[in-house]
Design a protein around this nucleic acid. Structure first.
Lengths: 303, 303
DNA sequence: GTTTACCATATCTTTTATATATGGAAAGAG
DNA sequence: CTCTTTCCATATATAAAAGATATGGTAAAC
């Protein structure tokens, strides 16, 4: 079934004459006559009964006209929606991210995407960096957001934002009263640190900073999740460091977050993709919106 | 949207490779590669992401595959049903007929058509011959069944069957006892005749037969409907002639029907169509089945 | 490291689509 | 009733598309 021929046939039916249809289709009459005849041969059906100079639609022709409308509608719609995929305003994007991204960036990104492009569906899975990397390599997700800067050949990394690590203290801690806190002030504290993998991440930077200040930190706890660790700080189990985005959780039930005097401790949020994989328009859209919003958040917190 | 290209695209997706799809499509690989590329250009969409030697379906491609299945299914189905129209096993036929055809032939014809070809819809309207002719000329019906043999240039007539006219007598009528009834025996009867139009039809034949026998019939009633006339005969209002098919109504509430000794009085049932009009396969089927069944009925009544 | 499997490109041939020019038949105007 | 107009059909020519064969390149597999 040739849809071009079908379309021409529909026009002939609607205009009631080959000559008029040819004009409507911006072509001349003879080829249209031939096209209709070939269409009849292709389908092995008489569509028009030709008696002298005028055409009469046969029952088959009437049926085809009815069905043809539906067929062309579906084809048109498919093409239109396909265009939307291409434009990046329809489709699906699968994201894997760490907790802090899921808490502080993604809600804003996803709200904007759903508002601007209602036909985009987002899938989000939260996990640690190595899990996200695995998901990316197995093609289970399109985009990952991690804190460790991945150094692998097959992965493309782009830094979303750099933020300072803040010291989390229970409200009744003596250091809360101090104007300027140095690393050295933590010499006698108990440290609660995030589980580290392969020498990359927040814990390593903290340990290195302590060493540079001339002491080895007293690490009493390793945990993967930031929020439970903050609750442990509240209970007086020790102190910890969290990315500054956690300042958004402003609650009397959570620790006080303080900048250090010398801002050497920082952490990067990176967006990663598989290097040699096709990136859909939707993924590109997601990427650029995420970068834009990350930039806005940095500007906002710098003010 | 070119359905041929779509079909090839579907095969490539299903086979997972252009080479295999080409084999399945009974063509060589290079033109299929080009065809897929042109399809992408036509739709302005990347359907496959080509990384080295293997293809990866993009989200757009996945969407098109899903939609394409539906589209091709509908197209296939349309073509199939179109073929059924052409074969005469799907469609509609509109019939106009007189009462006796509606009572004695059509039920059998329509039963057979619906049994053999369940996708054929029949429309039947009953009326007198001139009404049927009008309906035929205004294209409201495809086929007419009438008793008057139409002699018009634009009408094609085919005789379905010829049957004798039977004399209808009330059961208590003296003639019922007579072995052989002649026209001459009706010299003193009151005649109830069917309304005649333009010198053609049963009434004219009856009147002529009487004249040939040397008398003018005493006509006391003209009516268009046969059944009411038969009821009037039962009440003793007079006698009438009916086509022999009415013998099927064998009831003590209806008149006795008797053959005449000399079977000169006959009536023809004709099937008429518009000469220069397209006749659908369904109409042709209806025509041939009706002729066949009419023939069977004649054979049955002759035994 | 060689082979294999797969896609891409180049060139040629056949088919299809469309154009122009022209003929014929039926409806409508005078 | 004749002439014109309005259609559709046919003939021929050209441009575009579909397909075949031959060949090259690249990445996975043995």
């Amino acid at each position: 079934m040739n849809l071009h021929r079908l379309h021409c046939f529909m026009k002939v039916v609607e205009e009631g004459s080959i000559t008029k249809a040819a004009a409507a289709l911006q072509m001349t009459q003879p080829p249209l006559s031939i096209l209709i005849r070939k269409f009849e041969e292709e389908l092995d059906v008489t569509l028009f009964h030709r008696s002298g100079r005028n055409l009469e639609l046969t029952p088959s022709g009437e049926f085809l006209y009815k069905q043809g409308k539906e067929l062309l509608d579906i084809a048109d719609n498919t093409e239109k929606q396909l265009g939307e995929y291409h434009e990046g305003i329809r489709g699906t994007v699968k994201i894997g991210c760490i907790t802090s991204a899921n808490l502080f960036i993604l809600p804003t990104v996803i709200k904007r995407i759903h508002d601007e492009t209602p036909h985009i569906v987002t899938h989000v899975s939260e996990g640690n960096s190595s899990y996200i990397l695995e998901e990316l390599r197995s093609l289970s997700i399109d985009i990952g957001i991690v804190r460790t800067s991945v150094r692998a050949e097959d992965i493309h990394t782009s830094t979303l934002l750099t933020e300072p690590l803040l010291l989390a203290l229970p409200p009744n801690h003596p250091l809360c009263e101090k104007d300027s806190i140095e690393i050295d002030d933590l010499r006698n504290e108990r440290f609660l640190l995030p589980t580290t993998s392969q020498g990359q991440g927040i814990a390593d930077d903290v340990i290195e900073a302590c060493h540079n200040s001339g002491f080895t930190p007293n690490i009493v706890y390793w945990g993967t999740e930031t929020l439970p660790t903050l609750l442990m700080v509240m209970k007086g189990s020790g102190i910890c460091f969290v990315p500054s985005c956690y300042r958004q959780f402003n609650s009397p039930d959570l620790p006080v977050l303080r900048h250090l005097a010398s801002p050497t401790l920082q952490t990067k949020l990176s967006i990663i993709t598989l290097r040699n994989r096709y990136m859909s328009s939707v993924s590109k859209r997601f990427l650029s919106i995420t970068e834009e919003i990350a930039q806005k958040m940095v500007n906002l917190s710098n003010r």
